[in-house]
Design a protein around this nucleic acid. Sequence first.
DNA 1: TTGACGAACTCCTCTAGAGGAGTCATGAAT
DNA 2: ATTCATGACTCCTCTAGAGGAGTTCGTCAA
Lengths: 261, 261
Amino acid sequence: MAELPLPDLDPTSDRAVFRQIADHIRDAIERGVLAEGDKVPSEAQLMQHYGVARMTIRNALQVLQGEGLTVAEHGRGVFVRSHPPVRRLASDRFARRHREQGKAAFIAETEGAGGKPSVDSIKITEERPSADIAEKLGIASKDLVVCRSRRYLINGQPVETATSYIPAEIARGTRIAEPDSGPGGIYARLEELGFRLDHFVEEIRSRMPLRDEVRALKLAPGVPVFHLVRTAYATDGRAVEVCGTVMSSDAYVLLYELPAR
Amino acid sequence: MAELPLPDLDPTSDRAVFRQIADHIRDAIERGVLAEGDKVPSEAQLMQHYGVARMTIRNALQVLQGEGLTVAEHGRGVFVRSHPPVRRLASDRFARRHREQGKAAFIAETEGAGGKPSVDSIKITEERPSADIAEKLGIASKDLVVCRSRRYLINGQPVETATSYIPAEIARGTRIAEPDSGPGGIYARLEELGFRLDHFVEEIRSRMPLRDEVRALKLAPGVPVFHLVRTAYATDGRAVEVCGTVMSSDAYVLLYELPAR
DNA sequence: TTGACGAACTCCTCTAGAGGAGTCATGAAT
DNA sequence: ATTCATGACTCCTCTAGAGGAGTTCGTCAA
């Protein structure tokens, strides 16, 4: 439909035609003329409107897709991407007081927000840690660690993958090395084992997802991920767990509260 | 150069040719066969090697560029992207004890790491806040705020843009509304004005940059940004400042330390 | 009413060209 | 020694096609 008022090309501009076209559509999205979920005019319509070759149109659409503004659906059309409801992860989500109810942080949060949480593809292995993990745990890289990998879903939609690394010396033979780590999760188990947790350090990076991550999290093109690595320290200063999680950046906002001390 | 050992296409695969080619090159990068800064074989070489049309090669290279793995330089070639030195931002960087030396956080940190810090395009305006900012500051959206925009650079490379919003009622006529806010920055000024800072709340998002941000931060394609919004609260519970900053995600790692309480 | 079929529409992949423009090394002219 | 032109090489933009495959929807037969 020619309902969408797109400007004409500026032949005097030295900006490439496909960029100009991308600019027009981006403008329409940013100004709200095209709202979330709306269909962008088809390649054929845009060819017609601008009088250029199909490839030129496709290049323009490619730009927008790379910016995460649109998604193409084979056979249906190109649509303005809609953003899922955002989960806000508070910095105190692993505080002891939240653990005492006996629910894992993810389950409690999600149910609180009215979603149906589930956990997926739990895999427990015992491995030699990467140099990075070994250093964070303060162990030699030939010492073994127990790895707990899992994927979190809300209403069946994957939102996060996580892998915890606990020195095998601590975890072996305990419920931490079982698929179901019991009420309160592994932090509760660690405290029962006598490691009173003192503080966490979280390291946050953002980057484009790897191929596996795109698959595991069903990510749309142009969506970066948060890569968060949390290290848990016991009161004796010893690191007892490192947990690496990858989250879709458009499903999450991370919240931290800090003293001004 | 045929030095780079690339596999042949798998004609039985239903994976598109350009994706297979992208996979091969991505593998080479991930396995370290192609290191940072290395030149990817030219379009002509890849055409030759795979026996496909130029556009097919360009599509493959486009994929990698979108993933932030490579950058093309017109007339020179395509190169594996090299990552700038990473700045680690500690969560306590705005704590009072760091402020007492009289240096702004950014300057002190950068000099400590041996870089030459500078600040750029400082603009001070008085405006009506967006609904979001007004809500965070707990003021009506018709109340004015003083906006301090600036851009931070290290060795001339832009790394971060920031805009602070302070209720005009507080900032007007003070040094906060001057380009040079004086020793210790605006947090020091706020405390001198009697607003003893109690805590900060930081909200972190990650997304692809807008066009302006690409320009302002000289971002390579395929690099997401952190969008961090910090709200400063005084001891009386009042929000006295909101600061929004946009940072290149491959120049920063954010660090937070949290009590396990 | 239901279900199978097909036409029309969508985006996806790929080909084979063309001219343009930036970079760099070489070699000639100064 | 320096400057400058040249040509080879690079990626960039755009054209004009072709066949493929997924989606939607109306038609027609059961």
